[in-house]
Design a protein around this nucleic acid. Structure first.
Length: 419
RNA sequence: GGGGGAAUGUCCCGAGUGGCAAAGGGGGCGGACUGUAAAUCCGCUGGCGUACGCCUUCGUAGGUUCGAGUCCUACUUCCCCCA
C-alpha cells in the first residue's frame, strides 16, 4: 500500500523521484499496468470557488506528468458533487452553492487546465468531464439500490472525514454523508466510460479514493487503483498555499502574475528543491545543482523556480515581466509599470484623499482602522517613506513620476495612478 | 419520554464573578534582524470618527435590571446519563 521504491514503469518512477507519492493501493499491480500500456487516470476538482488555487497545483502537475509519460489524463469537474459538498477537512457544513454559481465556477476554472494539458481526441489527449452528467440523473431509489448496497455504515463511520466531524461534536448531514458514495460512483462511471483505472488526489482524499477502488473491484471485477500525494506543507510546518494577501488563486484576474511570481519567489530555502521537482518541468540535474546553492545564493534558485512556475501558468512573457518588476522593486528600489496598480480619478486626488481611505480602497488594508494601525506600526509607506499618520491627506504633490507608490509591508506594493 | 451539560470575539481553540469591546493561546498582519528565506524578539488583530466618543458583537427570540456573555422563559443544535 505504501510506495515501493523500485518501480519499473516510467510514470511511477517519475512520480516517485519527484516526490508526488504518499500512498498507493496495489502498487505492484499498478506498476505493471503502467508498463503494459497507456492507462487512463483522473483527478476530481470541486467547483466551490471561481478559481483553483496553488493548493491544487500538485494535482494539476500530476496530470501533466501522467500525460508526459504517455498516459491519458481525465479532468473531472465536480458539477454534481459540489452540489453536495465534500465534508473532508470541513469543521462544519458550508452553505450550499446554487446550480448557477457552480456552473459559473466551472466555466471560470476550466481555462487553466489548457495551460498544463493537451486536450483532444488522441489516445493520450486529456479530456474534461463534468460529473453532473451522470450524478444529476440518478433517481433516489435507483441510486440506493445500485450503489448504496455496497457501502456499510460501519465502514463509512470509520473514515476520517466522518470521524473528525463526530469527534468535534459538529453535525454532519445525511447529504454530506453521501459525498463519498458519489465520489466512488464517479470513479466507477469513468472506468466504464473511459477505462479509467486510477484516481489520484490529496492525502485527505484517501478514504474517498479507496471506496471507489473497492466499488469498481466489487461491482465490475476490474482493476482499479488509487494514489495520493503527501499533504503539502512548507518546511517550517505552515500549510502551503497562503501568502501575503490571502489565497493564491490561479486565475490571473484574481491574483496577478506578479503576485503569483512573488509567491514562488518567497519560498523557504528548505523547500526550493522539493517545489522545483513538484511544480516545474526543470530536469532533476538542474534542480540538484540549484538546490545545492547556499546562503543568499539560493535566491537565484528561487527566481528560477518562480520563473518556471509562472511560465507554466501565465506564459513566458508574464513571467519575465513579473521578474523584471520584482528586480526593479526589490533589488534596485525602482518603480516598474508591472507592479499592481490602482486607479483613482485625477480630480479626487487633486482634491485630496485621506491616506487611510486610499490604502483601504487600493486593497492594502481591510478597513480604515486597519490602515491606521498599520501606519502606527510603521508598516505603511508612501513613496518609500514610512508614514505613521494615516489621516494625512494625499494630493497631486505626492505624485512621483505620475504615480503614488503605496506599500503595506515590504511586499505588498500598489501604484496609485490618477486617471 | 425524563435528567444533566454545552454553544463566546463571525479563521480556530478557549477563560469569563451582572459594569465587557470581553483574559490567554494558535493563526494572520506589521516592525527589528537577514538574503523579498527560516529561527528569534517586539507590536497590532470588531466597524466608523482626528479625539472625550458612537455603533455592532458572546446559538436564536423574548424578559428581569440603571446596566446582561453572565439571571429568567421559550426555541434550535450538539454531548452525556436514565427509560
Amino acid at each position: 500500500m505504501t510506495s515501493d521504491p523500485a518501480f519499473k514503469s516510467e510514470f511511477l518512477r517519475l512520480m516517485q523521484t519527484r516526490g508526488y507519492i504518499h500512498q498507493i493501493t496495489h502498487s505492484a499491480e499498478l506498476d505493471a499496468a503502467c508498463q503494459a500500456g497507456p492507462i487512463v487516470a483522473y483527478i476530481g476538482f470541486d467547483a466551490t470557488a471561481s478559481s483553483l488555487h496553488v493548493g491544487h497545483m500538485i494535482q494539476i502537475m500530476m496530470l501533466r506528468r501522467l500525460q508526459q509519460a504517455g498516459h491519458k489524463p481525465v479532468v473531472l469537474m465536480g458539477g454534481g458533487t459540489t452540489k453536495v459538498g465534500d465534508p473532508t477537512d470541513k469543521d462544519s457544513q458550508r452553505p450550499l452553492l446554487t446550480d448557477a454559481q457552480i456552473q459559473a465556477n466551472i466555466d471560470s476554472i476550466q481555462a487553466v487546465f489548457r495551460r498544463f494539458l493537451t486536450f483532444g481526441d488522441g489516445p493520450n489527449d486529456a479530456v474534461m468531464v463534468n460529473n453532473a452528467e451522470w450524478l444529476d440523473r440518478f433517481g433516489y431509489v435507483q441510486f440506493l439500490r445500485d450503489y448504496g448496497v455496497h457501502f456499510t455504515i460501519n465502514r463509512m463511520l470509520s473514515f476520517d472525514s466522518v470521524k473528525n466531524r463526530l469527534d468535534r461534536e459538529q453535525p454532519m448531514t445525511f447529504l454530506e454523508f453521501n459525498y463519498m458514495l458519489m465520489q466512488s460512483v464517479d470513479f466507477l462511471e469513468l472506468e466504464r466510460r473511459y477505462g479509467c483505472v486510477l484516481q489520484m488526489g490529496g492525502s485527505d482524499q484517501w478514504g474517498n479514493i479507496v471506496n471507489g477502488v473497492e466499488l469498481i473491484r466489487r461491482v465490475d471485477q476490474k482493476p482499479a487503483f488509487g494514489l495520493t500525494t503527501p499533504l503539502l506543507s512548507t518546511a517550517s510546518g505552515q500549510k502551503m498555499g497562503k501568502s501575503v494577501g490571502g489565497a493564491v488563486w490561479l486565475n490571473a484576474d484574481m491574483r496577478s502574475p506578479y503576485d503569483y511570481w512573488q509567491f514562488w519567489r518567497n519560498t523557504e530555502d528548505a523547500d526550493v528543491g522539493r517545489f522545483m521537482r513538484l511544480f516545474t518541468d526543470l530536469s532533476l540535474e538542474e534542480i540538484a545543482r540549484l538546490e545545492a546553492l547556499e546562503g543568499a545564493q539560493i535566491n537565484e534558485a528561487k527566481k528560477v523556480l518562480a520563473n518556471a512556475a509562472t511560465t507554466l501558468l501565465h506564459g513566458e512573457e508574464a513571467a519575465k515581466a513579473a521578474e523584471a518588476a520584482a528586480v526593479a522593486a526589490f533589488e534596485q528600489g525602482q518603480l516598474s509599470g508591472d507592479l499592481p496598480s490602482f486607479e483613482i480619478p485625477r480630480a479626487d486626488l487633486e482634491a485630496g484623499v485621506v491616506l487611510a481611505a486610499l490604502a483601504t480602497d487600493a486593497g492594502l488594508a481591510a478597513s480604515r482602522g486597519e490602515a491606521r494601525r498599520l501606519a502606527q506600526g510603521g508598516g505603511l509607506r508612501v513613496n518609500d517613506k514610512a508614514e505613521t499618520d494615516a489621516n494625512r491627506t494625499l494630493d497631486a504633490s505626492d505624485l512621483v513620476d505620475g504615480v503614488v507608490k503605496l506599500a503595506a509591508g515590504k511586499k505588498k506594493i500598489v501604484l496609485v495612478r490618477p486617471v
